[in-house]
Nucleic acid binder design. Structure first.
Ligand SMILES: [Zn+2]
Ligand SMILES: [Zn+2]
Ligand SMILES: [Zn+2]
Ligand SMILES: [Zn+2]
Lengths: 143, 143
DNA sequence: ATTCTAAATGAAAATCATTTTCATTTACTA
DNA sequence: TAGTAAATGAAAATGATTTTCATTTAGAAT
């Protein structure tokens, strides 16, 4: 996985630095969605000579290459980063603890067509998120 | 319209100040979606003694009362404010000029049920936005 | 292996929207 | 009319992200 990304980076003309390796390893190793700060913290343990700025810059590249995607946090505004390149999918986010679950099958094609027809917009993409309370936070709340 | 909101504010224990009146008038008068800064700028013309902070605070209240709603800007992150209390609806946003069009009928109930079933989440709400290019920007692009 | 150069890095400063603080003012209630 | 909690605004604080710029370095060329 890491090797594949590294090859892609080289092919696209990006240099492969120890910082980028460290960041990649963190992202690939994690099953969860991480903020730039999270990634910085973890990568820093593995490779001390790394700065938060570099994390931001590397994430930009990975995003541009479609290797990672974003979550808009449940409190609105700030956008967070998440791992896992994959097919078209969306997020279900716990408003309590921030846990993120991916899901596929949004089936928004028809709605998109309708909107195009009605408004004349050329629709390019969509953002869909469900906000709710995850099982463990439900339990915690009911005790 | 303005009067209705004012009554509601009083009923809920909020005081009605000239600043709030000015902000309200701006929001009600506008057909477009405005940022706090936009609203501040306009309200300031009408009533000089007003600060941006008050705009933020008033918008919070109006949001809490469900009288206005938010748009998450197409560039990601920053959240913008928009007018018009209304039924459940979503936004179609032009990635070029920022124009926002409302639409209703998202029909996400079934998907919501499926997700609840599959993940155990108690789904509370959802965020749906379509991003695209509006008719006038399409024209502009093709010239 | 050595050299060369554009790309990458990080510390620090800059941005910029939003929030907090706090002293002062004011809308409403009694 | 007076009393009080709520509201206000100036200024400072926050906090995430971006920019700047001097220095380092990956990878290509020799
Ligand atoms: Zn949770
Ligand atoms: Zn989708
Ligand atoms: Zn447009
Ligand atoms: Zn909906």
């Amino acid at each position: 996985m890491v090797r594949r990304v590294i090859t892609l980076l080289r092919r696209r003309g990006y240099k492969v630095t120890p910082q980028r390796r460290a960041i990649l390893r963190v992202i690939v190793d994690s099953q969860e969605h991480l903020t730039p700060a999270d990634i910085y913290e973890r990568a820093h343990k593995e490779y001390t000579g790394i700065g938060l700025v570099t994390v931001y810059r590397t994430l930009d590249i990975l995003d541009k290459l479609g290797l990672i995607c974003e979550v808009h946090a449940e409190d609105g505004r700030r956008s967070y980063l998440l791992t896992r390149p994959s097919e078209h999918h969306h997020h279900l986010i716990c408003s309590d603890c921030g846990k993120v679950v991916d899901f596929t099958g949004c089936r928004l094609g028809e709605l998109e067509k309708r909107l195009s027809r009605e408004t004349g917009f050329e629709v390019e993409s969509h953002l869909l998120e469900f906000i709710g309370c995850c099982p463990s936070c439900q339990k915690a709340a009911s005790t």
